[in-house]
Amino acid sequence: MSELGICSRREADEWIERGWVRVDGKVVSELGSKVLPHQKVSVERQAAAEQSKRVTILINKPVGYVSGQAEDGYQPAIALVKPETRWTEDAVQTQFHPTQLRSLVPAGRLDIDSVGLLVLTQDGRVAKHLIGQDTSVEKEYLVRVQYSKPGRLPDTELKRLNHGLTLDGKALLPAKVSWQNEDQLRFILREGKKRQIRRMCDMVGLKVIGLKRVRIGKVRLGNLPEGQWRYLREDEQF
């Protein structure tokens, strides 16, 4: 079911336990049941109705918040999701309810020192699309840097940032890295290793002064104020 893009593995388990899943018209209630390629998997309407209620939230994460679980006294970004921090210009009619915080998980990381677009979702399909093994969704960052040597970063090192660096013993996928102005680079990546941009910059003698994620796929941060959140609109797709 997960491979077909119907739902996440966790959702599949829930639906099977509730008797909402059929194979060739017969209800399957046992987790881990094998399905052959020629067999047809279908789900009851209740599953689709429940899935449609699941929300995806966009936050402009400030410095000092962690993406996931609380750690070392720092608050998780989900702590920002409350009625008073919802963006007043949010065009979605959905009413906020505390049940929306249940199973609301970050679809990707943004480290504690970075700001910008962070996605929290209850929808397993969104999470898989953004952070699954086969994802190729672009993520765009604006990165303020300082060169540790006299003069300007050589073009050869800029080329290495685009393609040619290795992290944790594995070659990085090609990136798109270009200067925006004298001290700011634009990074567009299709992967997200831990503190990847900071480590890439360190390898070529650049110190990261500030890092902001401004886009994930086709969804942009836009004018969303720092520390505020909004719902993903129906017409928006990553």
Score class of each variant (00 low, 15 high):
S2P: 00
S2E: 08
S2A: 12
E3S: 14
L4A: 14
G5Y: 01
A12Q: 01
D13L: 08
G19Y: 01
W20Q: 09
V21N: 08
D24G: 10
D24C: 03
V27R: 14
S29W: 06
E30C: 02
L31V: 05
L31I: 12
G32P: 08
S33Y: 07
L36A: 15
Q39M: 07
V41G: 06
V43E: 01
R45G: 11
A47L: 11
A49Y: 00
A49R: 11
Q51P: 03
K53T: 10
V55R: 15
V55Y: 09
T56G: 07
I57E: 03
I59H: 07
G68Q: 13
D72W: 04
D72S: 13
Q75N: 09
Q75D: 13
P76E: 05
P76Q: 10
P76M: 12
P76G: 12
R86F: 08
R86I: 02
D90K: 03
D90N: 10
T94S: 05
H97P: 00
L104C: 10
A107Q: 06
L110Q: 09
L110P: 03
D111N: 08
I112G: 01
I112S: 02
S114A: 15
L118H: 02
T121R: 01
A127W: 00
H129A: 15
L130N: 05
Q133R: 14
Q133F: 04
T135S: 15
V137Y: 09
K139F: 03
E140K: 02
V143P: 13
P150E: 09
P150A: 14
G151V: 04
R152D: 07
P154Q: 02
D155F: 03
T156I: 05
L158W: 03
R160D: 01
R160E: 15
L161E: 13
L165A: 03
T166P: 07
L167G: 12
L167Q: 12
A171I: 09
P174V: 12
N181K: 11
D183P: 05
L185W: 10
R186C: 09
I188Y: 08
E191Q: 14
K193V: 04
K193S: 04
I197M: 03
R199F: 07
M200N: 01
M203D: 05
M203E: 12
G205Y: 01
L206Q: 06
K207N: 09
K207M: 02
I209Q: 14
L211C: 04
R213E: 02
R215I: 09
I216L: 14
K218L: 12
V219P: 07
L221S: 06
L221T: 02
G222T: 03
G222R: 09
G227N: 04
Y231N: 08
Q237K: 14
